[in-house]
Design a protein around this nucleic acid. Structure first.
Length: 266
DNA sequence: ATGGTCGTCCCACGA
C-alpha cells in the first residue's frame, strides 16, 4: 500500500489540487496537515467521492490534520497524548486495514517554533512549545512502538534533518527547523528504533518537500526537506519505494509543500 | 539593503 503525507495549507483553498493529486496518485492512505478548518468545514463529500474514508481533527483558522484511507479506519486517537491543555490540532492517529493485517498511521503537524528567541535573547514560548511537543511525540511513539506492529508516523515535522536537506545551510542556521536542540529531539525520536523512509531508500542531497511562497524560492529551487515518514521496524521491513511528487508545486495555486509517498508491501 | 507571498478572515498573525 502507498501511504502519503502532504501539508496542503488549507484544504478548502487547495481542494482543486488535492482532488487532482488524489485522482492521479491514488494513494491508499493520505495524511494531510494544515487543513485550516473545523471538522464541519472539511469538504467531506468531495473527498469521499474519490473513495476515501476520512477522519479529521480540525481547528478554526490554523493547524488541523486528517487521515484519508481507501480501506476501513478504526481505533482513532484525536490529539497528541501528554498534555490535556494543548488546544492545537496537530495530531491524529488511526488504524487502517492493510492487505494482510492492520497498519497504524499518524498524521503529524509538528510546531514550526519560530521565532526561537525574543528581544532579550531568551527562548520564546513558541520554540519551547515545539521542543515540548517533540518530547511528547517521542513518549507517545515509544508507547505505541510496544505494539510491535506496522506503524507509519507521517507528517510535516518542521525539521530539516541534515545540511544536505536544505539549499543553503547557512540561511537556516538558528532557525527552529535546524537548531541543535531540534536536531537532538529529532535524533531521540529516531533512536526509539524508527526508520526515516527517504534516508533509508534515497538519501540524496537537494531533494526537497517545501519551497516558500516568497523570494522566488520555487523557481530558484531554494527548498528544504521537512516532510517525513517514520516507520516502525515492522513497516520499514516492508518499505519498497519512496518518492516526492515535486511536480505538484508547479500547479495552479499550489501548496508550499508537496506530497511524499512511501510504498509498502503491507 | 530591502522587501517580497500566501491563507484566514477583516486584522494582524502564522508560516
Amino acid at each position: 500500500m502507498e501511504i502519503a503525507t502532504w501539508n496542503v495549507n488549507s484544504i478548502n483553498a487547495r481542494l482543486h489540487a488535492v482532488t487532482a493529486w488524489l485522482s492521479e496518485a491514488k494513494p491508499d492512505v493520505a495524511c494531510l496537515q494544515e487543513i485550516k478548518t473545523v471538522n464541519e468545514g472539511f469538504p467531506l463529500a468531495e473527498i469521499e467521492a474519490l473513495g476515501y474514508n476520512v477522519v479529521i481533527h480540525g481547528q478554526k483558522s490554523y493547524n488541523g490534520v486528517a487521515i484519508l484511507s481507501k480501506t476501513p479506519i478504526e481505533d482513532v486517537t484525536i490529539g497528541l497524548p501528554g498534555d490535556d491543555t494543548d488546544e492545537q490540532a496537530r495530531y491524529i492517529e488511526a488504524v487502517v486495514a492493510g492487505k494482510d493485517g492492520s497498519v497504524r498511521v499518524a498524521s503529524i503537524y509538528l510546531p514550526n517554533g519560530n521565532p526561537v528567541k525574543d528581544e532579550d535573547g531568551n527562548l520564546t514560548e513558541k520554540y519551547k512549545y515545539k521542543l515540548n511537543w517533540m518530547r511528547r511525540l517521542k513518549d507517545h511513539a515509544a508507547a505505541i512502538l510496544k505494539h510491535e506492529e506496522p506503524l507509519v508516523l507521517a507528517g510535516d515535522y518542521n525539521v530539516i534533518p541534515e545540511a544536505k536537506d536544505c539549499y543553503d545551510p547557512k540561511a537556516w542556521e538558528g532557525d527552529a527547523a535546524y537548531r541543535a536542540e531540534t536536531h537532538a529531539q529529532w535524533r531521540a525520536i529516531l533512536n526509539l528504533g524508527l526508520t526515516e523512509t527517504f534516508e533509508q531508500l534515497n538519501g540524496r542531497a537537494g531533494e526537497y518537500t517545501f519551497w516558500d511562497y516568497q523570494r522566488g524560492a520555487w523557481p530558484n529551487n531554494m527548498g528544504i526537506r521537512i516532510d517525513h515518514l517514520l516507520c516502525s521496524p515492522q513497516a520499514a521491513d516492508k518499505l519498497t519505494a519512496i518518492r516526492i511528487d515535486k511536480h505538484v508545486r508547479d500547479g495552479v495555486k499550489p501548496s508550499d509543500h508537496v506530497p511524499v509517498i512511501g510504498s509498502f508491501d503491507l
